[in-house]
Amino acid sequence: MKFGIIVFPGSNCDRDMMHALRDDLKQEVVMLWHKDRDLSMFTKDDCIVLPGGFSYGDYLRCGALARFSPMMEQVIEFANNGGKVLGVCNGFQILCEAGLLPGVLLQNDHQKFTCKNVYIKGESTENLIGGHVGNKALRIPVAHGEGRYHADAETLKKLQDNKQIVFRYCDEHGEVHINSNPNGAINNIAGICNEGRNVFGMMPHPERATSDVLNNIDGRAILEALTHMN
């Protein structure tokens, strides 16, 4: 099993992700340039990661232009064939723009870029990540200006009914309430998956919480989950 990390112009969490996966989780990692279009070395057991950052300078809308990178066509095909895909922060925004995940990430309700530790909690055990992390509150950093998840009522109901909500923002005791929501995301949603449960998107950065040196390893379980079979 191996991970592929796609580097877009403006990605800035790609190396963090590489260190977390390679040095902390001892996984094989391949860095992939967005202009390439070859994912033939990856099988369904592997995982493609879209890292955080500001791809294409966030021009037009966050993630809107990265969605048309040559490599994204391959990622869409890989995902549609059941391959595991994780998008973190800007990666989550790209997955929404690409239509691999429903909804959209809007500007934070308080108008500010937010960069701090928050707590999130697995919402359902019926997906790879949720099944692995359980329902303990995890302390994970967020760093975004556009992280307010939004979807229309019908889509939200579908996400809820299909148990596609992976993480909600909560407090350190695991209580989900408005005060633990860092950006105004609807229903405190911090991460979701697709219907096939092989494409995951989340705003918080698990790769920034996998090292004892950083005094936080709550993110390990999230990334470790992806080393398992779907």
């Binding site: 037009l60 809308r61 809107a64 723009e97 959209v104 809007l106 229309d152």
Partner: peptide
């Protein structure tokens, strides 16, 4: 297809 995201 690109300029507007009709979800928002």
């Amino acid at each position: 297809k690109l300029l507007a995201n009709q979800v928002m």
